[in-house]
Design a protein around this nucleic acid. Structure first.
Ligand code: FES
Ligand code: FES
Lengths: 151, 151
DNA sequence: TTTAGATTAAACCTATAGGAATAATATGCT
DNA sequence: AGCATATTATTCCTATAGGTTTAATCTAAA
């Protein structure tokens, strides 16, 4: 399951993407409008800043801004950082690879091959979906059947 | 000034580097021996794990481990992530570059050239110093005069 | 002896508090 | 008018609480 941290990060980012031409956005605004716990969100935004996904201005009139265009911020990146590896088993993870000691025949393990497929299609979707995509999806009225159009 | 987060991260990492052949190390052990606030350290270690600098094992007998050899973990990386850009002015930052609007003649700005030199030598030292280096330094009896030997 | 469940030890997750640093703006003094 | 000082709004930093999940080990029943 996606952690709250990851979900809140994504929500805040989509919000910032939508408001990207309106100057710095307050933590308080994001928290209130998206119903996110303010202090927790504060930590998350700070981490996003350290990742160079956001930048900030301090002091009066300050707030948070995207550090790059929405089209350059991939869901996959955010999920990996805030939620951990996409892979369901370590042996198919690209970012946190490890052999499964309990699987003797690593090379022919069926679980591994299926899970690798799962990871790969997940990565393809998540790395192919940017904040721009998410904003576009939310702006449209259609349901999941036509998502392919966006991705 | 180096933030506590950065300092604690480095201290914990050096401790883990020294203990690297002793299996998983407990948060509690690190906190106690290095006199670091336990719950705060917990957050920092988790972040180091998300950065793939550490790995962990959960449950009984668990703890934290380096995710790669000490020689591959650079001080510069840790400092940048936990403390921010090395540059003292944004216009010389590699990771967070921004033009200084208040300096009209960016190209010929003297402050900038000096600060660039400062950033470059800082980066050279910090990126050239790994956990392995730090452990070696602490194992030696000499003072800063002979640090060049290590770096 | 195997298996199922209980206990325990550990990291992990969500959340919050309180104050420091920073920057804009307003205010008051010369 | 110009400068110093105070106020205010904001992010940033350090720290902590409390509960959840995971995994190893122990215990008891089948
Ligand atoms: S080798 Fe990883 S699931 Fe079998
Ligand atoms: S241009 Fe950055 S200090 Fe002058």
């Amino acid at each position: 399951m996606l952690s709250m941290r990851a979900k809140y990060a994504l929500k805040a980012l989509v919000y910032l993407a939508k408001a990207k031409d309106q100057g710095p956005v307050l933590i308080g605004d994001i928290a209130e409008s998206q119903k996110l716990p303010r202090k927790f969100l504060e930590q998350i935004l700070l981490e996003l800043k350290n990742l160079r996904v956001l930048k900030s201005r301090q002091g009066k009139g300050g707030g948070y801004l995207l550090a790059k265009p929405p089209a350059e911020i991939e869901m996959g990146h955010i999920v990996r950082v805030f939620n951990g590896p996409l892979a369901l088993v370590p042996c198919v993870s690209v970012t946190a690879f490890e052999k499964c000691e309990e699987c003797l025949d690593f090379a022919h393990c069926g679980i591994r091959r299926v899970m690798k497929k799962v990871r790969d299609v997940t990565a393809e979707i998540l790395d192919g979906t940017t904040l721009e995509t998410l904003v576009a999806i939310e702006a449209s009225e259609s349901d999941e059947a036509s998502l392919m159009y966006f991705i």
